[in-house]
Simulated scan of single mutants.
Amino acid sequence: MEKGVIIKGIGGFYYVRTSVSEIVESKARGKFRKDNITPMVGDYVEISTDKEGKGIIETILPRKNQLVRPPVANIDQVIIVFALSNPNPNLQLLDRFLIMAEQQGLSIVICINKVDLEMEDIKEKIKNIYENIEYPVIFTSVKDEKGIEDLKHYLNDHITVFAGPSGVGKSSLLNKINQDYQLETGKVSKKIGRGRHTTRHVELFHYGENGYVVDTPGFSSLGVENIEPIDLMNYFPEFRPYLGQCKFNSCLHMQEPKCAIKEAIGLNKISSHRYESYQYLLEEIKNIPKY
Rank of each mutant, 00 (worst) to 15 (best):
G147L: 09
D180N: 15
K54I: 09
P165A: 11
K247W: 11
K51S: 14
N128Q: 15
P257L: 08
T49H: 03
V137G: 09
Y275S: 02
T38V: 13
L243Q: 05
R69Y: 05
L117P: 10
D50N: 15
V5G: 06
V45A: 06
S85K: 15
N178G: 04
Y235A: 01
E118K: 15
N210E: 12
V45G: 05
G195E: 02
P237W: 00
K127C: 11
E131P: 00
K152C: 05
P289H: 08
K54D: 11
K8H: 03
G53R: 04
K127E: 15
I159F: 04
L282K: 13
M254D: 13
C259F: 03
L106Y: 00
V24F: 06
G169K: 00
G12C: 04
S277E: 00
G55C: 09
L281V: 13
G223Y: 08
Q255M: 12
I288N: 01
H153L: 13
D43M: 10
V137Q: 08
E284A: 14
I112V: 15
E102T: 07
I6M: 09
K31V: 14
K176R: 15
Y44K: 15
N249V: 12
T18K: 09
K269L: 13
H273A: 09
P257G: 09
S107T: 11
G211A: 08
Y14P: 02
S166Y: 03
E203V: 07
C246H: 02
E124M: 14
I148K: 04
S48P: 03
N234V: 03
D157W: 08
P39T: 09
F162Y: 04
A260S: 10
E124A: 14
E134A: 12
K290G: 05
Y207D: 01
E118Q: 15
E46G: 08
V142W: 03
Q255H: 11
F13M: 05
I230L: 08
E228S: 09
S48R: 02
V224D: 05
T49M: 07
S21A: 10
D144T: 14
